[in-house]
Design a protein around this nucleic acid. Structure first.
Lengths: 213, 213
DNA sequence: GCTATTACAGACCAACCGGTCTGTCCATAT
DNA sequence: ATATGGACAGACCGGTTGGTCTGTAATAGC
């Protein structure tokens, strides 16, 4: 009956599904309370599972945290800053759109909970080398993708030739994460919007003078 | 012998001194491990004190955390973004100098531990309303001071008249905190410097065209 | 000199929390 | 049918942690 050769199991006792469930709930809990604020018991209660399930799929709370980075946060970063960004020919337009896309994914939580990637990075980078390395890799991936987009823009004449793509990419990421962070810290959606408006002014400095001016 | 009327006590059993000592060590511990990572026992061991001293001066760990904000972090913010910034006639020059001054205060720790104010804000804003309100006030104070400096610049003709001082101030704070955060996340001093260079490009857009151009 | 108060020291405690371990149910292979 | 292993349930445990409580030495007030 089954199309592929894989055996089909449904409803309960689906290993992959419960693992995903644990990861999803863990992501939400970490997003709200931080990794240090994540309680395994609370996680299991919200997931409707028990210790047996947890330690069957993860060898420790730390392993779960690292898996959230590898299997969720890295994917989110890739979705926004590679897949979405690549859809735009104009990198400056693409960067603005990707930032908006990211904020759309977060919704109102951006102003209260911030960015899940940056949150975890700020919390754990100084505490655990394993977390630090993986989160640094996520950041580097974002920077690489933005820098690549700017390079494409330089090739197509949209971006000024004297722009340091890498430095600009770092600053753009810093500005976006910083804007979300200040909005979170001040609990002000207006602050987020103001910061984004000013960020666009920086982006405008990267644009080459239009030929048909 | 004493100049003022206050009684003079020295060596041990100086209430104010031990309280300050507790605050200083608490600041260092929170800076390194976060508030949730702060352990009262560890704090006391490093301060050379005991539970008796701690709960004599603070009614709880939470009260200590709030005192660190009120009595240390708020003071740091004021030192950098009011006292230091006020020394410059040119606000753009002053903002650059103040950011450098802040980074000088943090030293190499900026790249590994980040900004103590932003760290605590990102960690605690979503968890405890008391922390959130006080840290929001600290951020607002910084924003106010930067905005005020920009307004002074507009009055003296250094800053363009059409600049939204408040929006610019928010973005400047976001950019600085974001840059430190990305440097921390990527463990890259070079990233911090690159971001700061690009930030200066934004600041340049605020400057009015010089009369003697 | 006596007393009240401040400023601690340090033993103690209850709750919490990550992790372990045994048992059980289901699917699959033989 | 039976054995085997994966996928959980849930009781249990030991270390940790914030906080309490009693005792005590120094200081201030009278």
């Amino acid at each position: 009956m089954s199309a592929a050769g894989v055996s089909e199991r449904q409803s309960d006792r689906d290993g992959a599904a419960t693992r995903t469930r644990l990861l999803d709930v863990a992501f939400a809990e970490i997003y709200e309370h931080g990794y240090q604020g994540l309680r395994v018991d609370t996680l299991l209660a919200k997931a409707g599972l028990t210790k047996g399930a947890f330690y069957h799929h993860f060898e420790s709370k730390t392993a779960l945290g690292l898996a959230v980075i590898d299997e969720l946060l890295a994917g989110l970063a890739d979705l926004v800053w590679r897949q979405h960004l690549a859809q735009y020919d104009d990198p400056i337009e693409g960067i603005e759109a990707s930032a908006s896309f990211a904020l759309g994914l977060l919704g109102p939580r951006a102003t209260t909970l911030g960015c899940p990637i940056n949150n975890l990075a700020q919390e754990m980078s100084g505490l655990d080398p394993a977390f630090q390395q993986r989160l640094a890799a996520v950041f580097q991936g974002i920077i690489d993708n933005i820098a690549t987009a700017l390079e494409r823009g330089k090739a197509s004449g949209v971006v000024r030739g004297d722009v340091d793509s890498r430095a600009a990419a770092i600053f753009i990421l810093a500005a976006v994460e910083g804007a979300i962070g200040i909005a979170k810290g001040t609990r002000s959606e207006a602050a987020l919007q103001s910061a984004l408006v000013e960020a666009r002014r920086y982006l405008a400095t990267l644009r080459a003078a239009s030929a048909d001016g």
